[in-house]
Design a protein around this nucleic acid. Structure first.
Lengths: 353, 353
DNA sequence: CTGAAAGCGCTTACAG
DNA sequence: CTGAAAGCGCTTACAG
């Protein structure tokens, strides 16, 4: 009467071998309390010897356990649609794991208003979630939130920008310094040999500004380390309205002309708009992110290169990391840097964010 | 006595509503024979009204159905390790879906020996597989194999290179023309303005050669369409030994010097080796593929750019497409072009094949 | 053409 | 601390 399934062993077989019931096997399998050390050891030994692999389908079918993840990222604004992509990735992951009993709930904040971050953070704490994914943009407010999560033993994933020195499960996002470094490397290939380069930082929030400075640092260091001839100027624009940006750019460009302009974030489309309106030609323009506006100017030939770091995948992998950690108990790599993709008008058609 | 699971409906509920047994519901669900048109219609109606979604876990747990996929790609040779990556992707996919009852068996052929392709193809036909993934490198031999698969109603996925006009499930791989076009676009940014460019095709097999010509075509057309000043020469090297390549390159370079050399495949490392041994400097070198040898020369600064098209993902998505088609019954996109990635010495660290 | 029962490999109360 | 039973939502023979 061979009625065993071929090859794979199950709880029943383990129970038989250990002379206990399957209930007891289940208890040690899911390390629940209420098993004597002795029988526990015996069962553990058998499990190991047999290299027992639980059947995830049977487990899911029988289990009623549910997990809940919270995500906390900036909301999509008129100023930038960048955060659509991570949200899309989060939703994709949520969809894939919902059949496995996990629910993902999204919270948002306004990049220009720290209080909205605090409000959402408070809601998440109150919501008793099992895992959290966040974009830690505001340092102080994030630090407070992280501390509370740590106290409640809620695993935290950071995406898009890191906060080193905190107790998070992992970081998934760009290496900012290296992306600036790469940009300089590209610039270095462009003619003429002794180019005049302008770095443009556009950002309202001081906290966000730090990230741009990391890119600037990478950019500058490339030229230093490689001894390339290059004159670098820079301009910080701390208001994001077009009128203001326009005025600042006009001031700067009246003082000097440039061969290359490097915009350290996705606002590059604003600079492109300025170039087009003012008929500025022959200046190589490099910026960040695969956004509709930017792609438009890439097609126009106003923007030459866009650097992009898979924002959608950041959201996707962020949620999946929580799942892998909490459900599958897989070890998670602490720092997961995204590829640094170079997008031009001849390969953007096939790019996947 | 509410013991129904919240929200979701199952076969039991459908059976109750239709006044039949769950066995009958199961029959129409999996469109098996032996149900009267009348009850079938009734059940179908209820399924639709309830928007019934089967529980995949229960299905897998209860089902004993197995599927078998075959893959047919070149074997890794000393000449090139390129095919490690697609194989790796295939294995990754195989691993992910093995719990879902599908087995993936890999067959190989020698790129320099068509008879090995035919041998493996024969084995696959004999093996009665449910789906096939292949790299259709040899046109005539592939055509015969494809025909047999079509007759046996075995779905076919092509990776790496396409064979348009055949009845395949989908193609997953590069747009060769566009990758040549992009390469030219990059070259166009390089100094000096009026560069002398050399195209190098290295390939033994005539069939493979066609693919290189598609890239060359894209490369040349870019300059034509963009009216850029450029002098293009080219050299076809039909033996792949280093001695032969060396001789051919020496001949060519003795006639003229070049600013840029574009190698249309992964053999670019051989050209790099030649440059290093012969102390040729200041020539920009562009080629294909994220292979260990190539990356070495990228780090050396002999190779400037590598174009890469995610070979591992091609294998992964190829197998997954068969799975999605056969198991999940998802619609599959016929042409799936890979991104065209630009790799330099400053971003290769983070590249994922 | 249709139904009733057993079973897939787990987890979940419940009883002791 | 441990066991026996019911059940998760399907599929699979088997009987009629």
């Amino acid at each position: 009467m061979e009625k065993k399934n071929s090859g794979t062993v199950g709880v029943k077989e383990i129970a038989r071998l250990a002379n206990v019931s399957i209930g007891t096997v289940d208890r040690v399998l899911n390390n629940r309390v209420g098993v004597s050390e002795k029988t526990k050891a015996k069962i553990l030994k058998i499990i190991k010897e047999l290299d027992y692999q639980p059947n995830i389908f049977a487990r899911r079918l029988a289990s009623k356990k549910k997990l809940r993840f919270a995500t906390l990222i900036p909301k999509v604004s008129e100023e930038t649609t960048y955060w659509e992509a991570p949200l899309h990735g989060i939703r994709q992951a949520a969809n894939e794991i919902k059949d496995f009993g996990v629910e993902v709930i999204s919270f948002f904040f306004d990049q220009n208003d720290k209080s909205t971050f605090k409000d959402s953070a408070t809601k998440i704490i109150a919501g008793q979630f099992d895992g959290v994914l966040m974009a830690p943009m505001f340092e102080d407010e994030s630090a407070v939130f992280i501390k509370t999560c740590n106290e409640n033993k809620i695993p935290l994933v950071f995406i898009n920008s890191d906060m080193p020195g905190y107790n998070n499960l992992c970081y998934i996002g760009p290496n900012l310094y290296q992306s600036g470094y790469l940009s300089a490397h590209i610039v270095n290939y462009l003619s003429p040999a002794d180019k005049k380069t302008l770095i443009v930082n556009i950002s309202k929030e001081i906290d966000l500004h730090h990230h741009l400075l990391r890119k600037e640092e990478g950019f500058r260091n490339y030229f230093e380390e490689n001894g390339a001839i290059n004159q670098i100027s820079k301009i910080d624009i701390q208001q994001t309205s077009y009128a203001h940006i326009q005025q600042k750019l006009s001031e700067q460009l009246s003082k000097s002309s440039y061969d290359v302009v490097f915009v350290t974030n996705s606002r590059v489309s604003t600079v492109a708009k300025y170039f087009e309106e003012h008929q500025i030609k022959g200046v190589k323009l490099i910026g960040y992110d695969f956004l509709e506006d930017n792609i438009l100017h890439l097609k126009n030939k106003t923007i030459d290169f866009l650097i992009c770091q898979k924002p959608q995948e950041q959201g996707y992998r962020g949620v999946m990391s929580l799942y892998d950690h909490l459900v599958l108990n897989t070890p998670i790599e602490k720092e997961q840097f995204m590829p640094i993709d170079i997008i031009t008008r001849e390969n953007y058609q096939y790019y996947s964010n």
